[in-house]
Simulated scan of single mutants.
Amino acid sequence: MVQDYTGRWQPARALLDNGSHASFVTEACVQRLRLPRTLSSVHVTGIGSLQGGRAKGEVTLSISTRTLDTKFQVSTLILPKITNDLPTSALPTTSWPHLTDLPLADRYYSQPGPIDILIGMDEMDKFLLHGLRKGERGTPMAQNTVFGWVLSGNAANLQSPPVNISTLHSDLHLTQLIHKFWELEELPPRKFLSPEESMCEKLYDDTTERAPDGRYIVRLPLKKNVLIGDSREAAIRALLRMERRFTAKA
């Protein structure tokens, strides 16, 4: 359970990952809870030192057990997405002999679902308890936590025969570096100026000077022979109205 901005507790799905140096929360979860965030410029690096993007901020979560009897403060970085739905495919409900008497933290562990929070090694010690259950090879093991027993490991005896999986990987970081390289090597495009633009450029070069107080002074590029219309009479009438108004007030 995670506390929102009004103090109400909302359910969330968390993943314990002792291979992560930091804890994370999804942008969607933060928006749902409407929690205040602080700025963060942390770059997230994944497997193979690939850049996983920049954190969209940092937020402190108030996390509790389902019964709300124990509360914890967890500092997390905000990411658009932590991982794909877990498990990757639905598992048929079955009973493993070594897990039958354990109260599991996730009642719907067998159904794929989104991960809202990832608790890394920086915060995991708050939640782990003594207790580890291991079964036969190919069955998941269970770790005792304040939320209940969590499952990890393989479930090979429930999986369908392996299928071929095709993946596509695009290294955006390398693509951006190559793009910047060509931008630096490319000659700047030639700019053709109109007569008025050329006059402004020359005026800037000829009249710019530095004042004693450090400010720059440059003449305004005024157009010549500009018709302003017949506005003299209208301006005189406006001036006379203002004079009569000031005289009345005096």
Rank of each mutant, 00 (worst) to 15 (best):
D206Q: 15
D230V: 01
F181G: 03
S166A: 06
W96D: 09
R237N: 11
K71E: 07
V59Q: 02
A12M: 13
E209H: 15
N164W: 09
R107H: 12
R245N: 15
G53C: 04
S75G: 12
R34C: 06
P189V: 08
E243C: 08
F246S: 14
G229T: 01
R137L: 08
E209L: 12
P114D: 04
G113I: 04
D17G: 00
H130E: 14
D171Y: 04
L16D: 00
E197G: 09
G19L: 01
R8G: 04
T67N: 10
D122R: 03
K191G: 01
K71F: 09
F181H: 10
Q73V: 02
T83F: 03
S75V: 15
Q3C: 01
V25W: 00
D69T: 15
H173Y: 13
L151M: 07
T167G: 07
Y204E: 10
E197Y: 03
E209K: 15
T38W: 06
L33P: 02
R244D: 05
R34D: 07
T93D: 06
Y109N: 05
R66F: 06
I82Q: 03
I82C: 02
S152M: 13
G135I: 08
R54H: 11
W182T: 14
V218H: 05
R219L: 10
L102A: 11
D101I: 12
W9T: 13
D106W: 04
Q176V: 09
L118Q: 08
I82G: 02
F181R: 11
I178A: 11
F127P: 00
L227M: 11
D171T: 00
F192W: 12
V226E: 10
Y204D: 06
A55E: 00
G138K: 07
T83D: 03
N154C: 06
Q10V: 13
P162V: 05
V42A: 05
H173P: 00
L15W: 04
L168A: 08
Y109P: 00
L33N: 01
K134P: 01
Q111C: 04
L61P: 01
I236K: 13
R54S: 06
